[in-house]
Write a protein that binds this DNA or RNA. Structure first.
Lengths: 187, 187
DNA sequence: GGGCCCATGTAAAAAGTTACATGATTAA
DNA sequence: TTAATCATGTAACTTTTTACATGGGCCC
């Protein structure tokens, strides 16, 4: 999807930014939190970790705890951190908003790890504006098809319009919260 | 995903319910309408049509138009229609609402082809209820994590909550519209 | 002793993406 | 005539899914 990394791989990198985890720990997070749009099956996670290790984005340390089976703990490397941050700073495109808004949300969720608070603001403004543009586009499409499309098709379009409007509203809200948050944190 | 058919394949079947199409025509629809969450690349569409034909769900007729290159027109078969309708009538599950709401919306968009108007109503009620349940779940999660999660994570959760609330609202609206539509169509 | 959760993997199959390849028709 | 659009496919590659496989620790 980006740099040859899939969004799952970035999700793993993002999780490792908060602290080291075992493969099983990562699986459990995908399984039990709303973050887990991703499959938590071993066939997904372990090969992904292997690839990330081959690329030098994560490192594995064997944690030997008194004799028995050694747990394998993963941590993000400097290169991994740089790769993640580069991804977080990518511009918000129309296609991303249209086709993969959940990936944009994943990026936003990890933006705490950026030093620059302005980056968040820019992201949200772009997300809001692109979403607003998308609302207009779907609305125009609906208007054009109104006479020929069956009622269920129109209602499905309405769902898209309402959902995208909710995103615009959310972005405005998030901007307000962040501005307050940052101004109160400064002095 | 279902019956060994992917949602893309069902999308193609649904499109063919409205009328016959060429492979290129299908590609253009995915490319230019909001329906197209799917890739419209030839490498996606043509192999999918091949598979559908092998399974006997669509048929191909060569339309010879005066000598030159024959266009290949696809139509849905009886078996394809039955397969599609079986898919449309599947119950709305929690996991579908959580992980693949856009597929549920695709199903809804095609439900015009069901004879039974009650099926639509049942679908919407279930969709609304499962979405409302999901709102509660994410809200509870957010409440539990409120103190430990960074602000961006919380805001990302808010986006999920608002988006899901929008779905609840939409379903209620759609139910109203459909009830009015059906009662006015009867007498 | 049996069942459940922790924990880590592999193997086969299948779908989708990207890129390649080709040719007809139409509009500038 | 040349560029764009119509039109149909194939091939290699990669990720993911599903299923298999194994073993330790803990609680009843």
């Amino acid at each position: 999807m980006n740099d040859g990394l899939t969004s799952l791989w970035y999700a793993i990198l993002g999780l490792l930014m908060a602290g080291n985890l075992t493969g099983y720990g990562i699986r459990k997070i995908f399984e039990t939190t709303p973050l887990g749009t991703y499959s938590s099956s071993p066939g997904t996670i372990y090969p992904a970790l292997k690839k990330l290790r081959e690329k030098g984005l994560v490192a594995r340390t064997e944690m030997e705890s008194e004799g028995s089976a050694a747990k394998k703990v993963f941590c993000i490397t400097g290169k991994g951190e740089k790769t993640l941050k580069r991804w977080l700073l990518k511009p918000v495109t129309r296609d991303q908003v249209r086709l993969h808004p959940e990936i944009l949300m994943l990026r936003f969720a990890f933006m705490d790890y950026l030093n620059d608070p302005q980056a968040k603001i820019r992201f949200l403004e772009a997300f809001r504006d692109e979403s607003a543009r998308l609302v207009k586009e779907i609305t125009a499409f609906r208007e054009a098809e109104k006479e020929v499309m069956p009622i269920n098709g129109l209602l499905a379009l309405d769902s898209g319009i309402l959902g995208t409007k909710a995103k615009v509203k959310w972005a405005s809200y998030a901007l307000k919260v962040l501005r307050k948050f940052h101004s109160s944190a400064k002095p």
